[in-house]
Amino acid sequence: MSASPQEIFQKCVYAGALTRNADAFAELFTEDGVLEAPLVPVDAAFPRRTEGRQEIRRTMAAYYERQSSDGGVPNIEKSRYVLHITDDPEVFIAEIDTVFDGDGDGDGDGADETVSLVQIYRVRDGKIAHLRDYFTPGMVS
Rank of each mutant, 00 (worst) to 15 (best):
F46D: 00
D70I: 09
L18T: 15
R80S: 09
D101Y: 04
I128M: 00
R122A: 06
D70Q: 11
A3T: 07
G72Q: 01
E95Y: 12
A129P: 08
Y121E: 03
L39A: 11
V115T: 06
A37D: 02
R132I: 04
E55Q: 14
I120N: 03
Y63D: 06
V42N: 09
E77P: 02
T59W: 07
I8S: 00
H130A: 13
E113W: 12
D107R: 05
E65G: 07
F25K: 02
V13P: 03
R122T: 13
K78T: 06
D87K: 10
T19W: 09
G110P: 06
T114A: 09
F25V: 00
D32L: 02
Q119V: 06
S69F: 15
V42E: 15
R48P: 12
L35Y: 08
V73M: 13
T136C: 13
Y64E: 06
S116E: 13
V42T: 14
D43Y: 07
A62Q: 12
Y81D: 04
G102V: 11
V73D: 13
H130I: 06
S79M: 10
D32C: 04
M60N: 00
V140N: 12
G102I: 11
Y14A: 15
R48K: 15
D112I: 04
I76Q: 12
E90N: 14
Q10T: 04
E31L: 03
I120M: 07
F100E: 01
V123E: 02
K127M: 13
V73Y: 12
T136I: 10
G104W: 02
I120S: 04
V99Q: 03
Y64W: 13
Q67D: 10
T114P: 09
F9V: 01
Y134H: 06
D88I: 11
S79H: 02
R20K: 12
Y121T: 01
V123A: 10
Y121Q: 00
R80C: 09
D87L: 15
S141G: 11
S2D: 12
Q67L: 15
R80I: 10
E113L: 14
L117M: 14
D107G: 06
M60V: 06
R48G: 08
G72M: 03
E51F: 07
G138Y: 03
I120Y: 10
D43I: 11
E31Y: 05
V42H: 14
E7G: 06
S79D: 08
D109P: 03
L18N: 14
R20A: 12
N75Q: 04
D105H: 00
L83V: 04
T50F: 03
F92Q: 00
A111H: 08
